[in-house]
Every structure is written in structure tokens, then in C-alpha cells.
Amino acid sequence: MAIAAVIVVGSVVAARHVDQPAAAPLPTGVLPDGTPSTFLTVDTRGSHGHILRLRDTHDGRPLRDLVRTRTDDIDATRAVDGSLIAVTSSSCGASIVRFDPGTGRRRVMRRLHESATEIAVSPDGRRLAYITRPFCPTFHCPGACSGPGMRAPNMLVVADLRGRGGSAPKRTCRGIRSAVSAGVRTGGTSSSAR
């Protein structure tokens, strides 16, 4: 019960730290060389948080700020239908938001009881893959599951985006262990030479 309370608070905090700039249709064109006319970046504002920005692929200049957070991480990608899927993520919760390409309006699709990074949308737009960490088992079972969760192997999760405003099921100790054993470590999409 205690862990459930901690998780819910984390999700609420994650949602509260997201600002909502004005809505407008999202560009969906391509340049003459076939590349999409825009791309997405997450800009860090020092200690003031992060901004999800839409930029011009021609020269990289910012076109629009889509999401601002004070502390949460942001990740985003486009689906085949042109909609934009953004995830704001704290250590214990995440919100999945969809921007309609025609109106630019945003809608919270899911709230998760775990972090979510390195996102990828399935070709049919119905599922979202992300990386998370089994960070909470210390409170559940100090035996087999104890230890600093943030140092445990990362897990690959596939979430169903259908439905409205639902929450991912809470992980049990057994669930975490089985997910880790079947999980995929990250490191494939980013790397550092240092």
C-alpha cells in the first residue's frame, strides 16, 4: 500500500510540471530531398527544466515550443499519421501525451507508474515501446528484490496506447523479476565515448 501511494504521488507531480503552450496545427511536410520538414529537440534550460521544441530541418531554427517541464525528462516522436507522441517522465511516473497534427491540441493518453525514456511508436500507432527501470522493489521485498533499483538492468516495455486516460498496471515483485529476466538492456540508441 505504501508503494502505491508513492507511485501515485509521482505521477501527479509529473503531470503538474508540464506547461501547455498554445495549440496550432503541426507541420507535416517534407523537404525536396525527402526529409521531414521538421524535427524535435529537447533543450535544457540550466536549472529551469526542459523544452520540447519543433525545429526546421532546413537550418535547425526553432519553430515552436511544444512542452515545458521544470524537472521531468521529455522524449517525443512522430507516428505515421503525423501525430506527435510526447512523454514527460520523472523517476517514478510518466505521462504520455498525443498532439493532434491538424489542431495541435494535446491529450493525455496514459499515465504510467514508472519512468519512460527512449520511446518508439509501433507502425500502426497503437503501441509505445519505452525503457524503464525496476526502481521500487526495495520497499516490496528486501530479500531477492532489494538493492538500488536505479542500478538494476533496464527493461523494455511495450504499452498499449488504446483506451483513454488509463494507467499501466502496478508491477509486482514477481512481475519485475520476470520482466528483468526477459528484458533488453539499453545502450543501442545512444552512447558516449567517455
Binding site: T38, F39, L40, T41, D43, T44, L52, I74, D75, T77
Partner: peptide, 13 residues
Amino acid sequence: DQPGEPTTITSGW
């Protein structure tokens, strides 16, 4: 090309 320490991370198209 943005000079200096990285403050921008590409997220996707």
C-alpha cells in the same frame, strides 16, 4: 552545428 557544451538533444522527427 551548435557551439559549446551540448544543451540540445535531438528527440525525433
